[in-house]
Amino acid sequence: MYAIELNNVSKIYYRHGGRMLLRNRIQRIMSGRPPESFAAVKNVSFRIRRGESLAVVGPNGAGKSTLLSLVAGLCRPDQGYVSVNGRVAALLEIGSGFHPDLTGAENIKLNASLLGLSRKRTAAVFDEIVEFSGIPAEFIGEHLRTYSSGMAMRLAFSVAINTDPELLLVDEVLAVGDSAFQEKCFRKIHEFRDSGKSLLCVSHAAGMVQQLCDQAVWLDHGEIVMTGPIDEVMEAYKGRRTPGA
């Protein structure tokens, strides 16, 4: 059984798709032109088994984040299908569910509930989350806006990893946090993988993903350039990118 399976998935965006005012709509109807479109993700297929970890690499705008959103079920593919087995915790942007005017403790509760934890379970893992984040107990009652960005990220990551997901989706976030915390995350993710759970992470750079994942997909302009073991893919990716950049 696969944890994640993508089969010929495409995602099409339209220009001016977001922030559309009435004016734009009327203009479009009057001009009678179909909106310009481009495919952010084109015919992508890959699968991840339980206990496997896959890195998606590629330059900015390659469609990596769109791919993660598709897997997280935040948007639906225009073609193909995405199938996901298991509880997902998506860490797509640092603290998307976090609010600066809430305290650290309040943010933990809010985000744990948004990630699907029950009231009981949240109370049970609360201390574990605080401890893992390494934020001193006296700061947990302070507003999030007084935290440094590293602290906020550590808190966000701690909540996500402690919700006991079967599938963790991570988007670039591990780039922040000091080396001690990164070390901690590494251990946690390895532990996580060893217990048969899967990881899908995204990065535009080598480095951490190479230590975390065993498989890789190289994405460019929404299309898969190469798939395979991470070392091979990363070598090719680095070699290809330098002359062009």
């Binding site: 079920g73 639906r76 299908y81 509880r87 699907g116």
Partner: peptide, 22 residues
């Protein structure tokens, strides 16, 4: 097997948390 599992056509996330708590 895969096609029998939760195939995702809509954008409804597979969320099975505590609705009232959230």
């Amino acid at each position: 097997n895969a096609s029998k599992s939760a195939s995702r056509k809509g954008s409804e996330p597979s969320w099975n948390g505590d609705l009232l708590f959230a």
